[in-house]
Every structure is written in structure tokens, then in C-alpha cells.
Design a protein around this nucleic acid. Sequence first.
DNA 1: TTTCATGTAATTCGATATGTTACATGATGG
DNA 2: CCATCATGTAACATATCGAATTACATGAAA
Lengths: 155, 155
Amino acid sequence: MKRDSRLSGVLHVLLHMAEMNGPVTSETMARAMQTNPVVIRRIMAGLREAGLVRSEKGHGGGWTIGRPLSEITLRDIYDALGRPDLFAIGNRTESPGCLVEQAVNAALDDSLAEAEALLIARFGTVTLAALSADFHARMVASGRSVDLETNHAPL
Amino acid sequence: MKRDSRLSGVLHVLLHMAEMNGPVTSETMARAMQTNPVVIRRIMAGLREAGLVRSEKGHGGGWTIGRPLSEITLRDIYDALGRPDLFAIGNRTESPGCLVEQAVNAALDDSLAEAEALLIARFGTVTLAALSADFHARMVASGRSVDLETNHAPL
DNA sequence: TTTCATGTAATTCGATATGTTACATGATGG
DNA sequence: CCATCATGTAACATATCGAATTACATGAAA
């Protein structure tokens, strides 16, 4: 199964946006993430609808963060992405007639639901501000400067 | 992302085996599961190596469970399957040079590791005997009889 | 020695996350 | 105005991976 990396990707984008002054274009972000601008717009679309970011067209346009980093949690972002499936394992048949399979599904669903609740609750406790702080701590530790060029392809 | 249903599948197979007297062939199980015998053998291979089941070739051959149901947990089976990935979400890049992405990965990995530990611990508490008991309870509740034909395609 | 069953490699199929192309919409600046 | 820049999106291409299938080898029992 191929893993969904949109959450990871969007976090990366948002933290970079937080380091910039003005709006950042999809084009710029795509180059930094080594992907396609359309991919960026696609993963940002949900966030825009959720009010987490804003986008402007035309000259000087691009994306900006819509709220303080301390008021955006991983859970907000996960929700904005449409709550993608968390698990790579699942039931063979979702509504089986077989009672054996029903028992199996019930046991598995129980365990997965518990793990999912834990994970989502944990997402709710992690803010972008915390991630940003961790990033800055890593930067100090590494002695690097705050610019995209250092870590990504030149813009 | 397509979900890995081997755990679900193998549990289904094992509980059906538990209802049978003698060995069950891959052919029979495949028909009951509406899949291919090779798929059955493939998912059973790891369990055989782990000693959870035995297989016999030739006339009267097939698969049998190697230990009391009360001594096999979901965790044993999960391990025997080779501990497949549990999560459908993951990092965009596994060893990023970008410090932002490192911070993102660290946060995500932390949360996922915690959820994984919970899930695996929980798997360790669920035995096949418990699943079998649940199945029998469901059967009593539904008034059905114990045979594959009732719930699956006729053998 | 025929038949039945597992063991396994190799290949195909199908689903889906991601990447790409193409074009429409709207904002800004001359 | 209108040329340019940027987002918005649909449509299509590609890559990956779980599952299914095919083919054939091995070994046990009648």
C-alpha cells in the first residue's frame, strides 16, 4: 500500500510559509518540495476551505497562513485534509454475511478505533507553533541559517 | 491506498479451521473466502514458520492449528505475517536534509509510534479463543448452525 | 504410479497516491 | 484595456503495491 503523505507534506509547506514574510506561491513551494504546483494547490484546497490558510490570485498573490501558529493543531489540518484513512490494515469484507468474519471485524475494528482515537487526540495537542519551535531548535543546533536555499533546491 | 487485509483474512481462516475436525485444504478455504488457494498458502506460510499452524501434503492433507486457541493472540499472528505496516499515512521523505521536514517527521513518528505501541499491546490481549467465543455467541444469537455452507458459497 | 495437496516463482490485474498537462478564472500593473 | 501572474480544476498519465492468477515443482498417500 502506498502511504498517504499529504499530512506530512502540508505540514512541511506550512512551516516554510511561517518563515516567509509575504505570500508564497504554489510554484515556489513546489520547487522547495520537489513536486508539482498542482499538487500543492490540491493539498492546500482543504485548508483554505477550513480557513487555515488564504490564497490570493494575481501579482503578489500566493498563500498565507490564516491564524496564529499556536491556534492550529495537527488535528485541524488532518480534518481539513478530509480525515484520510489512518490505517494500512483493514477488514477483508466490510459487511460480511459470515458470522466468523463479523466476529473478526468487530475485534479488529475495536482495536483500530481505540488506536485512532488516541492518535487523533494526540494530533489535537500538537500545534504548528510547537513544530516551528522544534524546527528553530534544530536550526540553532545545526548552526544553519533560515532560508530555503540551504535545505532545498535554490529558488 | 489499498488496505492490507491479510490479518483479517488469516483470522477468518483460522477460526474456520477451528470449527473443522480434520485438516482443511487451501482449496476449501479459498472457496469459502472467495479467493485463490495460492493466496491462502501465502498468508499461511508465515504462520507455519512461526509454528502456529501445520500443513500436510498429499491425500488427507491440508492445514491444522498447531496450538490451543487460547495460546494464540492477534499479536502472534501479526508478527507471523511479518509485522506489516499499520499506518496508511507516513512521511513524505524518510531522511530529509531539510530541518523543517525533520521536525515534521519527528512529530509524526512520535505520535504514530505511540499509537502503534497501543495497538500491538492490544493485539497481545486478544486470543483466538476469545474471537471464537464471540463467534459462537453470535451464532447462538442468530440461530444459525455451525457450517460453512450457511455463510459461504457451498463447498 | 496416479492422485491429491502444498510450495513458490513469475506474471497480471486493480486500486490509488502522486505527477503532469491543459485551460479557465480572476487580480494587478502598466 | 490587456498582458502577466497566480490560483482553480478537470482530465489524464505514471508508479506502486496488494491481490489474484498461472505454471510448475515437491512430496505424501492410496
